[in-house]
Design a protein around this nucleic acid. Structure first.
Lengths: 144, 144
DNA sequence: TTGCTAATGCGAGTGATTTGCAATAGGTGT
DNA sequence: ACACCTATTGCAAATCACTCGCATTAGCAA
């Protein structure tokens, strides 16, 4: 399993180990990613980065996120038809997203263990419940 | 539950009942959708429709699919980063998709009943396991 | 056959991301 | 401190999957 990066320094070290360079955009982006556990789109992250360094281009954010994902530092997930959202790989989890109000529930992997077992025994299929959110209705929207 | 359309005629009748018109593009598209149980993108469907009627535009396919989805005749699902895939609503099911080779496994809803129960009791969340595929590895790719 | 308006073709627009390319800047060796 | 190599960046343009505006066409009810 790649990307044993639980701190900003670990992540930068990982970048260096793979022949990458520690640039200011990388440093700022990683600091922002490590500063909260939120799920943010590339554009939102670009906004936060640009608050510190206005010249950093959105495409640089995309390229950095791509590289960090290849290194296993970040992952992205899809919550619906909008843009992908990125978060640190150290906190992998499943996602329940309400189709009506967009509410996000972070779900421990253990919630999928029954499905994982059944998928494996019945189809030999190994599920990865992180990439696409499980859509549905939150309690508020389901009862409303 | 809308869209009790198990035959082409039912679907056309449903269109009429909602003030829609039975156009040749609609008729051809529905015939193609009913002719197989496959999962096809709008562009693939357009190709098949255009084999019969070359003048039917891709945007017409999108608009027809949108309308048919509103009527509950078809549904779309996402299998990865590519285009959405459409199929008849009469055969709703979950999807397991291999991230490596793209293999698709159609999964009966019952496979998600355990997860549905747990999601409901622990978060009051009602899952809808149809829209996004569950990604992972098929048996061939997992062992390879 | 007429008239109303849903539906279509076509082109342009949008949102999210990707790519080509010349300029810039990390980092390594001296 | 300096030179050099090449990873990285800014910027613009391209791409992919749709989505929309609009003038024209065509279902279908009267």
């Amino acid at each position: 399993m790649p990307g044993e990066a639980s701190t900003l320094e670990d992540a930068l070290e990982l970048v260096r180990q793979h022949g990458g360079r520690v640039t200011s955009s990388r440093r700022i982006l990683l600091r922002i990613l490590f500063s909260s556990t939120g799920h943010r789109s590339a554009e939102e992250l670009a906004g936060e980065v640009q608050a510190e360094a206005p010249d950093i281009h959105l495409s640089t954010i995309y390229r950095n996120l791509e590289e960090l994902e290849r290194l296993g530092v970040v992952v992205h997930a899809h919550f619906g038809h909008g843009p992908a959202t990125y978060h640190l790989a150290t906190s992998v989890h499943g996602h329940f997203v309400c189709e009506e109000c967009g509410t996000l529930i972070e779900v421990p992997d253990s919630m999928f263990s029954g499905l994982a077992r059944d998928a494996s025994t019945r189809f030999g299929f190994t599920i990865d419940p992180h990439h696409f959110a499980m859509l549905g209705r939150c309690s508020a929207c389901a009862t409303g």
